[in-house]
Design a protein around this nucleic acid. Structure first.
Length: 651
DNA sequence: GTAGGGTTAG
């Protein structure tokens, strides 16, 4: 029996309110509700949950306070709505009031309440709720068990989550997806994939979990191929899948395929999803196309801070720092990622002064610097060889409690190594709780480049003995460098020969050059010559230079002449060739040849990067370029230099 | 009225 009043129908009216909320017409929904001569509990529930769904919390709570009805639906709708708006604390408050009012919670109430406990990260609270769940008899409800599994996963109680999962009599796609996410979270993507393949049922969310985690974990190719598989299996990808796969394509710089998906997304009308659009901005920018990235960015109607950051990063990555800075200034609600993006951009373009300036501004603005900030800024200290700044940053890292982070440790190891303080470097390295491949690389490389060849090699051997890490191309380069500098040629050759067979790494030009250097330094000139001619690709200019320097040390005039000729041919095509050749002539006192080459370079318009050095005095970097006296005190410095020269005694 | 998923920086 439908109740009629004033020619209106109460049930139909409630439906109309709901429909208006769904269409985003919240004001109309409110008007309809306010003008109703009579309302039942459904009217109140529909309006309040609708307002909460649209994020209009204050209005919703205003109505909630005036609602005359007592029923579990209304309480539950309000609790879940608050949780959805990130107001878990308030949600728990409503739950407590609900219990006090005498209305009994049901299974749906508990799923929301457990989620609130998870969002609050409060294990004790969760345990108290569990007591209530048992008291009301919902512990075996599938949805409640699922929420308990997720709660424990979120708080890191993996064993407990697993136990609840194993104890469940009934499992659905949600349970399986939660447990899949557990393996994904612990970084065991292989086990995660096994679970995924064996799941009795999959929906688009299970697919999206697997795809997004492949994408986030840097397994871009796997993400893309799983996406294709998903479509072949007849599933319709949701927005999450699209944003993840676009992000993976961005990492792969697969512009064409990304464009195809862009077109498809527009066609099916997913053109309002901010996640997809952030990834699209990233796609175009990572492929070097900031213009199109900007077009996509400008087309986003309601920009959030993430898409602003994507665009700033895009400009930064492509060296367009002026554009990056301009856009950065316009961000209405910057977060620390915005700052980090700009700082990284300055560092990548070697604008270290600007990087530090921006870092200081960041601190002054009250923005929290995080681990990423320091990992960038420490890199800048390393590039500037600025120990003073580096130590200052180290102190800040310790003060903020970041010192046990593997990224921090690695950045510090590298900074101390690059500034020549290998002892501090070792100290940081030894104190690191977790050492990954990059940390080992930094330390082995640091030792080798600071002349501690034996130590570098023994650390490499220690890594092989004590860790599961397999050497990468950079580590091997350092190993060759070390072998070369302590005359362990045969050892170096042994590792070179193991590269492909044992470690599965194809030697690059730089590895070959390193071996040429190793042989030349040891005086095994003919072997070096043979090696260079047998290389599978065109040798680097540096390889010839290494051989030439060996010839000179060991007095092989004939070969030296041949190489010099070869080098002058190469100089025609390779940009660094002229510079190298002129240096070689200079070192053997052939000044006429040197000046000829310089002339040739000028005529051909070849740019030589200028010689450059700097010192740090009282926390300021003083930069000096060759043939340039723009330093403010250059004339005084020149005078002092003259004085020092006159005082020098030639022995 | 419910539980599981997504975008940016190192």
């Amino acid at each position: 029996m439908v109740k009629e009043f004033n020619g209106f129908n109460l049930v139909a009216h409630n439906c109309l309110i709901n429909a208006n909320v769904d269409w985003g017409n919240v004001s109309e929904a409110r008007r309809l509700f306010d003008e109703m001569p009579e309302r039942n509990e459904v009217s109140w529930t529909v309006l309040i949950s609708g307002l909460l769904r649209c994020g209009r919390v204050d209005e919703a709570m205003w109505y909630f306070g005036r609602n005359p009805f007592q029923n579990v639906f209304l309480w539950t709708a309000t609790i879940s709505g608050l949780v959805h708006n990130g107001l878990s604390y308030e949600a728990m408050g409503v739950f407590v009031k609900m219990l006090a009012s005498g209305v009994a919670p049901n299974d749906v109430t508990f799923t929301s309440v457990v989620r609130a406990c998870g969002d609050l990260g409060d294990f004790g609270l969760g345990k108290s709720v569990l007591v209530l769940i048992v008291k009301f008899g919902f512990e075996d409800k599938l949805s409640v068990s699922n929420s308990l599994v997720s709660f424990n996963l979120k708080l890191g109680n993996i064993d407990l989550a697993r136990r609840i999962f194993n104890r469940m009599e009934e499992r659905d796609v949600v349970s399986w997806t939660a447990i899949l996410d557990m393996y994904v979270d612990t970084g065991d993507l292989i086990e995660a994939r096994r679970i995924f393949d064996e799941m009795p049922e999959r929906n688009e969310i299970s697919w999206s979990v697997m795809i997004s985690r492949y994408s986030q974990g840097g397994y871009s190719k796997e993400a893309v191929s799983l996406f294709h598989e998903m479509i072949q299996c007849g599933f319709i990808p949701n927005t999450s899948c699209y944003s993840s796969v676009i992000s993976a394509l961005a990492s792969l710089k697969a512009l064409q395929e990304g464009k195809n998906i862009h077109g498809h997304v527009l066609k099916i009308g997913m053109d309002r999803d901010i996640f997809i659009f952030c990834s699209l901005v990233d796609l175009y920018c990572k492929s070097g196309n900031t213009k199109d990235g900007r077009l996509v960015f400008d087309s986003i109607l309601e920009k959030n801070v993430v898409c602003w950051n994507s665009m700033v990063t895009g400009y930064s990555l492509n060296g367009q720092l002026a554009e990056a800075k301009e856009l950065f200034n316009q961000i209405p609600n910057k977060n620390n990622i915005s700052w980090n993006s700009l700082i990284t951009g300055y560092i990548e373009t070697e604008n270290f002064d600007r990087a530090f300036e921006t870092f200081n501004e960041m601190i002054l603005s009250g923005e929290q610097s995080n681990k990423s900030t320091f990992s960038s800024v420490l890199k800048a200290c390393a590039s500037l060889v600025s120990l003073e700044k580096g130590e200052y940053m180290h102190a800040k890292v310790v003060k903020l409690g970041f010192q046990n982070d593997v990224f921090m440790g690695t950045a510090l190891v590298d900074m101390y190594a690059k500034t020549g303080h290998i002892e501090s470097s070792r100290k940081v390295f030894n104190g690191m709780l977790i050492k990954n491949e990059i940390a080992w690389t930094a330390m082995i490389q640091g030792l080798a480049e600071n002349g501690f060849a034996e130590e570098s090699l023994s650390l490499f051997e220690e890594m092989e003995r004590t860790s599961t890490i397999t050497p990468n191309d950079l580590i091997l380069l350092s190993v060759f460098f070390a072998c070369s500098h302590c005359g362990l040629v045969d050892k170096g050759l042994f590792y070179f020969n193991s590269m492909e067979k044992v470690y599965g790494i194809k030697p690059s030009e730089r590895h070959y050059t390193s071996v040429v250097d190793m042989l030349s330094r040891a005086g095994r000139i003919s072997e070096a010559e043979m090696f260079i001619t047998d290389m599978p690709f065109e040798p680097e200019v540096n390889a010839w230079a290494a051989l030439l320097s060996g010839c000179k040390t060991y007095g092989n005039e004939k070969l030296a002449e041949k190489i010099a000729k070869k080098l002058s041919e190469l100089a025609e095509t390779k940009s660094g060739g002229y510079v190298l050749l002129s240096n070689i002539y200079a070192s053997s006192g052939r000044w006429l040849d040197v000046s000829n080459i310089r002339k040739m370079m000028q005529e051909k318009g070849v740019k030589k990067s200028r010689g450059c050095s700097w010192i740090e005095v009282r926390n300021r970097i003083h930069l000096f370029l060759s043939q340039d006296d723009s330093h403010a005190q250059s004339s005084e410095i020149g005078e002092v230099l003259k004085l020092l020269n006159s005082e020098m005694v030639i022995l």
